[in-house]
Simulated assay, not measured.
Amino acid sequence: MADTVFFVTKASGKQEAFDLGKLQHSLKRAGAPPSAMPEIEEAVQKMLYPGISTREIYRKAFSLLRKASPHMAARYKLKKAIMELGPSGFPFEKYVGKLLDFEGYDTQVGKIVQGHCVPHEIDVIALKDEQHFMIECKYHSEQNRKCDVKIPLYIHARFLDVEKMWQQRPGHDHKFHQGWIVTNTRFTDAAIQYGNCAGLRLISWNYPRKESLKKRIDRSGLHPLTCLTTLTKKEKQQLLDQGLVLCRELHRDLNQLRSVGVSEARLKKVEQEVRLLCEPESPIL
């Protein structure tokens, strides 16, 4: 087995050699108990076959990790949990707003802003010191969806219209204005090239390397409630419909769980996962 190289199929359809190091890194990143890792690694390696999908590998690792430690499994499924902030995409906008709040920005979500030519509905407006940002969130429920160059082209045009109006406000002539695009998947190379050239700030799941969406979530510890393994899909959607997006919001008020029908018998189990998930953890490198 050690000498056999298996090629796995990614969500994009591309194939690459199975890398045990990537699996180990993702398990460590989730905080998997060291005692559970050898069993998970061995089980995954035994199930490998040519062309196996990364989704199938993920499901196996997640299932085993969930048995060993539910709240660690919740951390492991972070990327999938972000994709469950749908179907409208508005919960993703709220989630991005919460991340920026944590980073010290003053934010507004879902505001209508008058541009120089026409009004625009802006996903997130963020202020910090002498900086003013217009942020558009591009949510996808499938990993293989990418933001191509048409997205920054369109957002840049909208930003220029809004910026022209902002600059006419008293005290705004000296402020720094910028348009951002935040997506939970990826940008094409052309989209990144245009965005950088036009002065837009692009943030995707893994770009830029030190300020990606994934890195920001790791630093903040703000896990979406869709991470939780002890809630049903229906219960999560009901909580999202109530305007909640963070595990921390449930940690502060367990009555939110009761309001969606979580029984007292299950409440303790859910509360334990929420509490462990919200506890401060060691920095992830």
Rank of each mutant, 00 (worst) to 15 (best):
P70T: 13
R75C: 14
M72W: 01
P70W: 08
M72D: 11
Y58D: 08
Y76R: 04
F62V: 00
S63M: 07
A74D: 05
A81I: 09
M72H: 12
M83S: 06
E84Q: 13
R59S: 09
R66E: 15
L78W: 04
Y76L: 11
I57H: 00
S69F: 05
A74L: 07
A81V: 09
K79R: 12
S63Y: 06
H71E: 15
K80I: 11
S69W: 03
I82Q: 00
Y58T: 02
I57S: 01
P70C: 13
A61L: 11
R66D: 15
G51Q: 06
T54Q: 03
I52P: 08
L65P: 06
M83N: 02
S53Y: 02
S63K: 12
K67A: 15
T54E: 09
K60L: 15
A74N: 06
K80C: 03
R66A: 13
Y58Q: 05
M72I: 06
Y76F: 15
E56Q: 12
A61N: 09
R66S: 14
L65N: 08
A73V: 06
A81Q: 07
A73G: 14
A61I: 08
L78I: 13
K60G: 05
K80N: 10
I82T: 11
A81S: 15
S63I: 01
S69L: 04
R59F: 00
K67H: 10
G51L: 07
M72C: 14
A68P: 09
M83D: 01
E56D: 14
Y58G: 01
L64F: 04
K60A: 06
G51E: 07
R59Q: 13
K80S: 13
T54M: 06
A61F: 08
R55N: 14
K77I: 05
I57M: 07
T54Y: 04
R55Y: 10
A81L: 08
F62M: 02
P50D: 11
R75S: 11
E56M: 08
R75E: 10
P50R: 02
M72E: 12
K77S: 15
A68I: 07
I82R: 00
K60F: 04
Y76V: 09
G51Y: 04
I57E: 00
S63V: 00
M83R: 06
R55G: 05
S69T: 04
R59N: 12
E84M: 08
I82C: 14
K80W: 08
